[in-house]
Simulated assay, not measured.
Amino acid sequence: MWQESFPIQLMVLGALRYLGRGLTFDDLEDFTAINEEIHRQFFHVFIQFGSSDLFQEYVAHPVNAEQYRTHQHEFNMGGLHGAGWSSDATNVIMWRCTHNLKQANTGFKQSYPARSYNLTCNHRQQILHTTKGHPSRWNDKILAYHDEFLYSLRKGDILQDAKFTLLSWCNQIGGPVKESRYCGSWGLVDKNGYHQWSCTQAPGKADLTLPERRLSEFIESFQKDAKCTFGILKGRFRILKADIRLEGTEAADNTWLTCCALHNWLLDIDGLSSEWQNGVQSDWEGELGDNEAEGFAEYAPFAVQRLQQPEIAQFGSRGEHERSMARPGLLVPEVSQEDDSAAGDNDDNLSITSDGFGETVDEDGAVYINSLLYREFRSLLVEHFDILWRCRAIVWPTRN
């Protein structure tokens, strides 16, 4: 009926206003002089299209190394080599829930029915994957088992050709380092509730050493990408923050998937889905940072010298006395060249314990991370991050 009698542009704008402002169909009737029942029928067609065709076009998780590489950029800047995504779960209120489903969709944290969605995104808040709705009574572990992307990573069905390098000390802390190659993908999850899989790293709850705490702080900061994405989604689409007043779980899930597709589409239109390169230029870079005073580098504070001349060593011209007083550090790690074949080997103290998912190493000697236990892979990440921290090689990514 609406296909022939009403302009499609007006109906689409009404559907977008329903999603973005959280209006009712009665409100749309007041704005457009089109019967609310017509708006309701069209909206169900709109979210059916958004959750199928539109979602498939704008939301797709990487399945090989070439597709995965662009999502790793910001994580590599932050010293989390091999990582490329963050994952978390959220709830969306669903008021018109049938009585037989109300108990399952009423979680332990709230007294109203809701649907739970596990979402995976990169550091640019670009959605890579999301599950369809599940009862809000389910916890994060159950959601992870029903998350196609996370469980495929654990089994090694996707991204097994993605390779990355981790650093480790050869003999002692502060000495030469060696490089080891690994295969697979890993990401960041919340510390409360998720499985301890090697591909899902969470902030530590009881870190005993300073390197462990540093890594946990960075993981926790990067993992907030998923929470920021939830905030952006619920800010752009008021229906997700207020409530979904459509009948049935299928309509609620279609609404969520449509909002995710529109979110990624808007990122592409605004130019915010590309890699973050060098950040916003500060006053110390370019012509603004040039000082006309002759001999400025000689009397400038040491921190300013490092800003203008990054190649200066960590301790610069402070002298041997101050070098001995400061904590150990390396500007550029010395990579051991004793045995080139060791690049694909693990530490001597590391035991590879397969959990039954695929092979342990590939044809080049790189270790599959899904063949390692959670604590084994975590110890490698702690050592790698500690080396980069001492080298001043970790940069928090900022948008251009």
Rank of each mutant, 00 (worst) to 15 (best):
E148G: 14
R392D: 13
I34G: 02
A33D: 00
V335T: 13
D345R: 11
E212S: 11
D243A: 12
M94W: 11
D140F: 04
Y368P: 02
T165F: 07
T120A: 14
W2C: 05
I387K: 09
G319M: 13
M325H: 12
N139M: 03
F6V: 09
Q56P: 01
F31G: 00
P113Q: 12
A114G: 14
G14P: 00
F31Y: 01
L188M: 14
Q56A: 09
C259A: 09
A251K: 13
A261L: 08
G329T: 11
D362Y: 02
T120V: 15
D362A: 02
L388I: 05
L23N: 04
Q196P: 07
K155C: 10
M325W: 12
G14F: 00
R124N: 05
E217M: 10
Q314D: 11
L128H: 03
G204V: 03
E285V: 11
D268P: 00
D88G: 13
L373T: 08
D207A: 09
S111Q: 14
D225M: 06
L16Y: 08
A202N: 01
V335M: 10
H44T: 01
N254K: 14
Q201E: 02
N91Y: 06
I232E: 12
A297E: 04
N370Q: 14
F218S: 12
A293F: 00
